[in-house]
Design a protein around this nucleic acid. Structure first.
Lengths: 266, 266
DNA sequence: GCCTTTTTAAATGCCAGACCTTTAAATGCC
DNA sequence: GGCATTTAAAGGTCTGGCATTTAAAAAGGC
């Protein structure tokens, strides 16, 4: 194992890549112990701090865990569904919030993905899934519920629904759509949305899932998508006219998901 | 900004989290410069190496970039589609390869997701997308193509197809299904699959996309899913009988995606 | 002889201080 | 005014060390 001193990348990045590749290729398998930091330093011919930086990179991706003490060290970690899900949500959230993505694009992607679950939900949903959805539905009807809690329950409802596919891999993939996009879209539309209407559509989804009615599941999603899309458009229309009234040309409210802080663009 | 010396987490993990949260919340926006490592060390009251470890964690997630020299430093990085895609693929690949996930589950998830694109592909595909698909189709018919290249072209074909939705967010989300799962599934089935049959189904998908025929797109996907599923099952059936003949009970070939190296389970 | 306690060694976690390299701005020369 | 030189700021790396954790080995008590 050697590293290239002429590479543009840092030593720690090269070393991290080398170990990461070993994990992905299967040369290092779950719970294998890596050599100690001192040994790695000798193997790669760098100092211990450099090795440590490389290991921290891997730890940031949940690829290893470290354990102190005698016979401790760095071990290849089994990536759990929960870890993968969190990473996927973080990445998706950042991608959406740092790039100019239109509300329509996000909305379209979000619903296209969730609608891919309808057939499997109708087939595989259990009573437990229906109960979880029903629980969230009740929460959403509480009169004094904060907007944050309503959004959280909204996410919980949809998560329960996609869990109804009985396919954990699919649930994990859906997290990017539901748990990353839903809150961002909520942040834009919460002022104008009607909780009653959303609750009604959720109730429709729940009933369709209970009846294993694929077609109705799909049509309820179509309604929800349509509603959200219109809501988003009306919000951006309002913002646009507000801005126009103020006399700012501002190149048109581009209906982006990005909520800029202020004019600080240094 | 202070850190908790009694926390179970490392200082570097706590500091990384603190900065990461600032980025996600929008307190630090794209191209903002973080304080120098020396200044951060003073602010958090830790040493510079500890700060550096924290920054490497963030760099591993593509959240910051660093620049040497005067007026250099760490800057908040705009997460590009390509970065997000790579991370998503890596995470998905690892999740699949480190957990006991059945071939059926992976296959089901993969096709459910890609099929969610059919409507938008029919609507939004351009000539460029069709050409990209057509190019890959030709590659797949080359007689001396290696299995690796066939797999790569297979992925390329499906990527071009989902790009046909015209929705980059959806394309990004699909990468987890197509570019992570397809190669893993190929690794299992490449011995038994018929290239001619796959090419024929790809041709069907291309024709359907060209004709903006949503229904046919969906039925071709159903064919492909069915074929892949049967292929996977027959491969695992074979392995199972091989093992039984050898006299190993081995608790039944569990048709998992994991390809264990050998008996090394220390 | 067995159980409990103490010791010890191997790791990681963290720190101080230094030197090298890179880079862009400031300076000075022509 | 334009070009070459200097300089300072910042990250990249190394050496060496101390602190803390932890499990195994050794010692001791019953």
């Amino acid at each position: 194992m050697k590293i290239d001193p002429n590479s543009t990348a840092d030593y720690s990045a090269q070393i991290a890549k080398s170990i990461r590749d070993a994990i992905i290729s299967g040369d290092l398998i779950v719970d294998n112990r890596l050599p100690s930091e001192q040994e790695l330093a000798e193997q790669f011919d760098v100092s211990r701090p450099t090795i440590r930086e490389a290991l921290k990179r891997l730890a940031a991706q949940s690829l290893i865990r470290t354990q102190r003490g005698a016979f401790g060290g760095a071990f290849v970690r089994r990536l759990s569904y929960e870890d993968a899900r969190k990473q996927h949500i973080t990445t998706s959230t950042l991608l959406l919030s740092m790039n100019d993505i239109s509300f329509d694009t996000a909305c379209q992607a979000r619903y296209a993905m969730e609608r891919s679950c309808v057939g499997l939900v109708a087939e595989n949903r259990t009573e437990a899934h229906l109960e979880a959805m029903s629980r969230e539905l009740k929460v959403q009807q509480l009169p004094d519920l904060s907007d944050e809690s309503f959004c959280a329950s909204d996410v919980g409802f949809h998560r329960a629904l996609v869990d109804g596919t009985g396919n954990p891999v699919l649930s994990y993939q859906m997290a990017g759509a539901i748990e990353a996009m839903q809150p961002l879209m909520n942040m834009i539309t919460f002022t104008d949305r009607s909780r009653a209407e959303i609750v009604e559509m959720h109730a429709g989804l729940l009933a369709a899932a209970a009846n294993r009615d694929t077609k109705r599941l799909d049509s309820e999603f179509a309604r929800l998508e349509d509603y959200t899309l219109k809501l988003g458009r009306s919000v951006f229309q309002k913002r646009k006219s507000l801005r126009t009234n103020k006399g700012k040309s501002s190149a048109g409210a581009n209906s982006s998901l990005i909520l800029r802080q202020d004019g600080s663009e240094t």
